[in-house]
Amino acid sequence: MSGHHVVPFKTNLITFITLVVLTVITVLTAKYVDLGEFNLTLAMVIATFKATVVALWFMPLKYDTWMNRTIMLSSIAFVSLLFVISAVDLFTRA
């Protein structure tokens, strides 16, 4: 089928290695570096980065249409809305 990008083996391999390295960083920083509450933030930042790598190169939204990107982004937007409104409620309770 024309117009569809075939992701080469090398790209898939690099993506996989990147994800493994990020997993090792996640474990090392969470287990052996005490940052207090910031540990959670750091772990979530790395996890979000990993999820983005999977979405862009494995799924691969990098070579997909804006239609499919919009579908993915809109679901993330609604989940964010749930998180933000819940947080606003929790942090403003007396």
Partner: peptide, 8 residues
């Protein structure tokens, strides 16, 4: 992660 790689 390995399974995702082989699936891709």
């Amino acid at each position: 992660l390995l399974s995702s790689f082989t699936m891709a």
